[in-house]
Design a protein around this nucleic acid. Sequence first.
DNA 1: AGCGCCGGTGTTAACGTTAACTTATCGAGC
DNA 2: GCTCGATAAGTTAACGTTAACACCGGCGCT
Lengths: 364, 364
Amino acid sequence: MKKQSKKPVTLADIAARADVTSMTVSRVMNSNGYVHVETRERVLRVAREMNYRRNGLARGLKRQRTETVGMVIGDIANPFAAELSRGVREVLEQHGYSMFICVSEHLAKEDVQAFDSLADHRADGIIVATRASKSGNERLAELIDAGIPVSLIGRDFRHPHADLVIADNLTGGYEATSHLIELGHKRIGFIGISLTQGLRLKRFQGYLEAMSEHGLSVDEQLIVGGRNGSDQMPGYSTEEMGYEGMIKLLDLKQRPTAVFARNDYTAMGALNAIKRAGLRIPEDIAVVGYDDIPLASHTSPTLTTVRQPTREQGRTAAEFLLRRIQEDPDQPRREQTFECELVVRESTAAGAEFLASQNKERIA
Amino acid sequence: MKKQSKKPVTLADIAARADVTSMTVSRVMNSNGYVHVETRERVLRVAREMNYRRNGLARGLKRQRTETVGMVIGDIANPFAAELSRGVREVLEQHGYSMFICVSEHLAKEDVQAFDSLADHRADGIIVATRASKSGNERLAELIDAGIPVSLIGRDFRHPHADLVIADNLTGGYEATSHLIELGHKRIGFIGISLTQGLRLKRFQGYLEAMSEHGLSVDEQLIVGGRNGSDQMPGYSTEEMGYEGMIKLLDLKQRPTAVFARNDYTAMGALNAIKRAGLRIPEDIAVVGYDDIPLASHTSPTLTTVRQPTREQGRTAAEFLLRRIQEDPDQPRREQTFECELVVRESTAAGAEFLASQNKERIA
DNA sequence: AGCGCCGGTGTTAACGTTAACTTATCGAGC
DNA sequence: GCTCGATAAGTTAACGTTAACACCGGCGCT
């Protein structure tokens, strides 16, 4: 059924028409080596006429590099990942690398598939911003051992030859929680994990530490959310989780006076559940999110949250990766931690004067 | 500076260790042709030991296809694009194709770069979901003419050998506006375009048609938003545009009683500006968005919007593309239009009874 | 005159894989 | 015994590009 379609133009085709060898055409295309001005122009003209596109496969095969970097993210709609990718791209582009994005939908299986796919297509390096998983980490280790440069962002996985950039989410969670405690809250809920598997989440550890350091006990009933069983959640529904988690909390005999959500979407879901229940924010219940996505300053009330230097993390990961590509893939690992910053907005501010005194936000 | 790093294992390396030829190893790896059971197992064992990864460049070069499809989107954080990409992936994965995403950040230059990059790396086909631009369209036409299968989503560009899936945004915009008119609104604003360049936007045309058909005049003061000059807007800020646009509308001597926003983010910005101004929704001002992103049912009030079958569009585009890849790249174009559906929620509902009578939404 | 060097171009041989073909062995069927 | 088909390999020659080297004429220098 497949019709014989016109096959792509090659250097040799151009060479024949321009009466030179393909080597000369190659030199013209890559502007290296000596080529007579007239020859160059003739070749370029023919190439344009024939609508030549170079074959990156052959090129990459011969040169043993593709000037291509793959980035693996868990959820394409996540503004946090989006901002990371922008940082990565900024740097890669400057250095002439193309970036291709693979999405794992937060599934370990797809994670591995993405790694394989990028490795097989000989990406020069891989930037990984997905959540850690056993099978994913194992495959990643194999690839790193095979000499593929890898740079990780916020993934709880270390390898002697892979770089890592990460935000200090432990402190971030600690500060968010402490902020609530300082406002006088004692019953503080956490939305977005299940107790069985959330213990590795740094921002949750920060929550626990803050509570215990201030002598507050943690009521397990106040820890809600997270998927039953598997860790898979279709793209966007973290915010659904926030909504449902909050409802559970509101139904308690003794409900919390404040909640800390694992991320801003979750927090937005919680905001909604609270408003729906006819309660006021922050008077009845205060809410803190995490990530400071652009929407966080446009909810009502605006959302107190923890900002991490997202684009900067992407940039740094890309820089680490490029160094590893251009120097030695087996060089010792670099790790950089970024500090987080509490951004106080209306969802926790007791009053305007508090906001005014605390809020260091730039006038955006 | 670059240290001699261990070079990747090849079929020949395995062949040597397993005492066969690389052809036999190739047969094992691709499970085609006859291979003795013992030989196969020996080869597989050696391959695993040596941590073999096939070279997709060489493979693609020889086979003249890569089983890879590129998708170009304008904004990675846009939930609409995210949902499209999920649909695309669903189909591609079923057929054994890998998908790589390129992001153009809504810039024509990056659009062209993405096309080139995918073409050069010999993707078997390209799915394009970015906004049309002169330079982008031109390059796209070149690639299509060169025989690269292309499938377009919602891009205002036609080519005899490229497929197109598109939502009927004209009708969508018409219905959204008619809905407001039927509710009794006469001064209806539109947020999200500039008059000079927004005329091509189908949903805006639908707005204009509905207004004129109902004998309402359009006040140019009520058309706000859009960037001054260039069409570039950094990722997310459409919602900023909604906020600022709405403020402009609120400042008018005679402000609108309803607004139609070009998409849900813009609408959310508008919601916020209205609430901030101390006005009620929908009593003082009604709001309609577009796209029905997941968040739309979680704002307060929930957002009336126009839903398009997003994932379905992605799936269809992928199916079109696969057919074009597997059959004839020069086959005549297919075009499929998807109907949109008005989803009435609180931001326009006059009262609960209205909602109850109109809202066909599934109990999600 | 002889030498070296530079500009300009060609030749050769890979890069790693696989399509297409060839070779060889083993039984089954006549 | 001979042919034929299935099984199990091996051989050859690309796919399109470029690194490395070779070649050649001309110019400047000793």
